[in-house]
Design a protein around this nucleic acid. Structure first.
Lengths: 180, 180
DNA sequence: CGCGGCCTTGATGTGCCTCAATGGTTGTGG
DNA sequence: CCACAACCATTGAGGCACATCAAGGCCGCG
């Protein structure tokens, strides 16, 4: 998929799941007031059941150029697979706690730690493939608030941004303390 | 279970699921700052997998005197059951949208409609088994805000409260418009 | 070169939280 | 039976975190 290309699931009713080989995708859901919510980012190795996306007429969009595998296996095998369903329930529960009671700073700390683990585990720095607007829609914040908290964390010496896409985590421990 | 009684799942590692025959329960999860989040209310007929509760060391507490069936079947049969898992994912997605971008008034409208459907579908009025504090922890609001929005809806003529537990929905259509 | 998208920062408003007080209700033990 | 405590519901006052509106800079691209 090209960057920005949209995969809308009703287009292909025969498909039941999708797996990312390379690149980064976002799972978008339109809201009634015209805004959108991003429920997940998909990294290489990640998969998702399409029924889950279709349920709230969502779409899957390429954040970067991406290679994806489209799976048309029997639904029960893919979506109903207990491990996969349980894993998703766990991830969604964590997101529920985050959206409910974390403030902007705590949300961003948790987000950065999550991305660090998913993009480059063990590395000192990593590149965020998505824009500030994407991050905002994922954390249910305004892009301005995301931005301000980035600069706040920089001046606190927690992180550094060599450029706006590249993140260096300078002090992981306090970041984890904030994000928990 | 008596009113207020707590069922903490690690107590009974042999159990994998729970089904409510009568009464109302709340699924509680402690947060790191000492507060709690209620992820669900369980009404007669509702069931829940206990792994999901255990994952974030939650507990299940009786809001009213309740009869529950404790199930010790094989985990794969109960929790992994595709329909049940998919239903939970759908419900959690709806909650994600709610917590993310709805304001207090919209949250309360959605809550009242949900409870009306679950407690007394088709009836004109119904009784809320839970306290304002429980509602607040479910919607991620303060109890005062819940209260104020109740009185606001009353003065707008949307609902009536013969007593603090009993809810009459006077105009369903505008309530649905707000809560969507 | 000019345009559009993204990032960043400032100014301002407001929705909700926090703190505080009051009255009603329930339950409990003397 | 009554006094007391505990909990719940409600309302007011004040403050803060975040959204919104606005503007300017940077970069890639046609």
């Amino acid at each position: 998929m090209r960057r920005g290309e949209v995969f809308r699931s009703p287009d292909r009713g025969d498909l039941v799941a999708l797996r990312v080989a390379e690149g980064c995708l976002r799972v978008c859901h339109p809201l009634h007031d015209g805004r959108r919510q991003i429920t997940d980012f998909l990294m290489p190795g990640d998969g998702i059941g399409l029924n889950e996306v279709r349920r709230h007429n969502g779409s899957i969009e390429a954040v970067t150029p991406a290679h994806v595998a489209l799976l048309a296996t029997d639904a029960a095998e893919v979506e109903g697979e207990p491990d996969l369903a349980q894993a998703r329930i766990g991830a969604m529960q964590a997101r529920l706690f985050m959206l409910g009671h974390k403030n902007a700073r705590e949300k961003l700390a948790a987000f950065l730690l999550e991305m660090a683990d998913r993009i480059a585990p063990g590395e000192a720095d990593f590149r965020l493939p998505m824009s500030r607007y994407d991050i905002a829609d994922y954390l249910c914040l305004s892009p301005e608030t995301v931005c301000r908290n980035f600069t706040q964390m920089i001046s606190d010496g927690l992180i550094a941004l060599p450029d706006s896409q590249t993140v260096q985590i300078l002090h992981r421990a306090p970041l984890e303390f904030i994000g928990r």
